[in-house]
Design a protein around this nucleic acid. Sequence first.
DNA 1: TTTTGAGTTGTTCGA
DNA 2: GTCGAACAACTCAAA
Length: 477
Amino acid sequence: MKKDISIHWFRQDLRIDDNPSLNHLSIKGIPVLLIFILDEVNTDRPIGEASKIWLNRALIDLNQQVKGKIMFFKGNPIIIFRNLLSKFNVKNISWNRCYEVWRINRDNDLKKFLTDKVDDVKSFNGSLLWEPWEVLKKDKSPYKVFTPYYQKGCLESKPPRKPITKKIEFFNHNFADYSIENLKLDPKKKWSLNILKEWEFSKNSISKVVENFFEFGIKNYKEGRNFPIKKNVSRLAPYIRWGQVSPHFLWHKCDQYKKKVSEQNLKTFKSQLGWREFSYYLLFHFPKITKKNLHSKFDKFPWISNKKIFNSWSRGLTGYPIVDAGMRELYLTGYMHNRVRMIVGSFLVKNLLHHWKFGENWFWNCLFDADIASNSASWQWVAGTGADAAPYFRIFNPIIQGKKFDPKGKYTKKYIPELRKLHIKYLFNPWDCPEEILQRNGIKLGKNYPFPIVDLKLSREKALSALLTLKEKTKEL
DNA sequence: TTTTGAGTTGTTCGA
DNA sequence: GTCGAACAACTCAAA
């Protein structure tokens, strides 16, 4: 006889705690079958290389948490569910929502397919503090500027739900042929083994990372988060992206630390969660942000595309030490400090005049926290093509930025060992250093560290004048 | 209804 | 050395 079960479909909510879909199924009183589907059929863009590696490790750990009870599938969900309906007496199916267009469409189709076959089919909000369609201006149109969106739209509406975890009985499927190996996510390249080194995956270790941040890093978050060598940033982005840590949990954790941490620091950290919300908000209301300039007047911008230049940027060989340090951090660790992300982004788009989509694609493949919403929205922000964009004349100067935010050069030297001996005075502009000093420190520009790939002043002026050509007004969003 | 001021992350120039 | 102004155009919300 077929068994009565409920099904929870894991997607970007790779956790048991504070999982609204699981909580919903817990009250049904029948065992919950856990499934994961790698859907490369419906997607318009497969997950990036680093994301594959992260997902693989996260799933292995999640499966351990539930004693190996997850069934892993690869393929088209609608076919997989049809198959499951033939094997079991499925009473309830639920999942937590995603917000990319292709997933929304796929899930809607699936829901239609399932409704007359299963009693209860529901989706929940497991990853956003505010649903994008619930936050609107007075005239019911969506916000396009962060501050009013966040201050007015979010903070003055109902507060995010508190994290809840319920006890659930998981169904033991006992099938041998639905193991995680079938997903073929297992990394083969040496690169993938190396970039995992600095990251934790077990539930306990992730908790420790969170605790550690709230006990130490967050205490000087507002100031310290700008300095890449300081330990004030949370580094939680990849965990949030894959749902190993819920934003709701972090939001309310801030409230628990009101006595220990100054309001300013808590507020700044919360607003970072707010930026993630804003990115998803934009993705939902303006789905084209993943591919096209939000402000289409930038379509006419005279971008260039040069493989050699792009490769120098991506491999950290531009000759601008702070840029190169960031790009190497990314390639070595699957992560880049936020301040440096802005510097390298500005450099690629404004100094090297490359379209943001090239940078976005590189980040997509290298970042553990690569998230279609944040990645697109942030690249558009830095490029000046997006919502709430930086003014076009805001072009980061990698020398000033280096001096300001890496004043002792520790971060830069960590990732550019060939400049380790160079005095801080010349660290961010080694080409200005007298030849004899370079020689004494073992540096031969053009040999073991590149000459600058572009002239800073000239490329800045070029970008500014190119931006001025966009003057004609085309109103579109 | 119209006006006004402000808006995550900057740089340069001239006083 | 420090400081303020200028570098657009547009969205939003308060006055």
